[in-house]
């Protein structure tokens, strides 16, 4: 430090690079490099046993397009995202609104609702497989109480995917709820007082004051959930294994099976790129929609 006065703010210095280096190394090694490798692999014939057999152009994508099961997984995944994301936004917001106060009761309920998020997917699916057990499970008991016939959710082509969606929402509703709570607490109390003096009903206050104030949070929650739910894997694998008749098989399971069971890495990488593009389109679409309404 011969001349410390020279190293002011805005002065380029090698020392500055050191501060960002750890992050850059991690993000390059664990994100950019695998991403680039994955894109490259998608255009190769690469078998884990047979090894690399050269570039194949778009053949992997062509095979995906022709694969009935893969097309099914795309449909299942999109359906799943459409089921869960609105549920996360609406239910998360509802819980946050109901629990956004300093009552002891609310503090306990906030902890409970967030608590399930820390459970591992194996525990969660175990609990819910017990609930969904035909004839003996909690669901069957409840349905029997109100004299409704029991449903074998997990083995029903209609109900299996909604069953997984319910498990997922129950499992990680805590995150959107917490994000919404943080958003709600940013709203100045004076706004609500002004609204009270302006004769605003509770409904009018919700529509005209609360929702516009947390519009950004709503977009963030929706984007986060879309990105998360497109990656559905563990719940489907552990509850239904992708059945019945592939009606719950998600894209990630397909990728996993193509890559690590069938060992066709190039083919699996191509499927990954399709998932990546779908997630990108969905997330950007929501950003765009969120901005347009601003």
């Amino acid at each position: 430090m011969a001349e410390p006065a020279q190293a002011g703010i805005g002065q380029p210095s090698l020392a500055n690079a050191l501060f960002v280096a750890p992050y850059m190394v991690l993000v390059t090694g664990l994100l950019f490099a695998p991403l680039a490798l994955g894109i490259w692999l998608a255009f190769q014939d690469y078998d884990m046993l047979g090894g690399w057999a050269g570039g194949v152009g778009l053949e992997n994508f062509q095979n995906l397009w022709d694969d009935r099961i893969f097309r099914g997984t795309v449909r299942n995944t999109i359906k799943f995202v459409l089921m869960t994301t609105p549920a996360f936004v609406i239910l998360g917001l509802f819980l946050a609104l109901a629990l956004n106060n300093s009552l002891r009761r609310s503090a306990i309920l906030r902890t409970i609702f967030f608590g399930s998020s820390v459970l591992s997917v194996t525990i969660v699916t175990l609990i819910w497989r017990l609930i969904y057990l035909p004839d003996r499970g909690l669901l069957a008991d409840i349905l029997a109480l109100v004299s409704l016939p029991g449903v074998d959710m997990v083995n029903s082509q209609i109900w299996a995917l909604p069953a997984i969606a319910i498990v997922t929402v129950w499992w990680i509703i805590g995150l959107p709820m917490t994000l919404f709570l943080a958003g709600l607490q940013q709203i100045p109390a004076e706004l609500y007082e002004a609204a009270a003096l302006d004769n605003a009903s509770r409904w009018r206050t919700l529509i005209s004051i609360t929702l516009p104030s947390i519009r950004r949070t709503i977009v963030v929650v929706a984007v986060i959930e879309v990105i998360l739910q497109f990656q559905l894997f563990g719940q489907a694998l552990l509850i239904t294994g992708g059945g019945p008749d592939n009606t719950t098989r998600p894209m990630v399971q397909f990728i996993y099976e193509a890559g690590f069971r069938d060992l066709q890495l190039g083919f699996a990488a191509a499927a990954s790129q399709v998932l990546f593009v779908l997630m990108l389109i969905a997330a950007l679409g929501q950003f765009w929609a969120g901005r347009r309404r601003a």
């Binding site: 004076e190 005209s208 516009p212």
Partner: peptide, 21 residues
Amino acid sequence: IAPGDRGVAMVFQHYALYPHM
């Protein structure tokens, strides 16, 4: 009675204007 029905109007310390309107 409710604040809105009292026939008073208030100017707040931080103005409390609705930011999105």
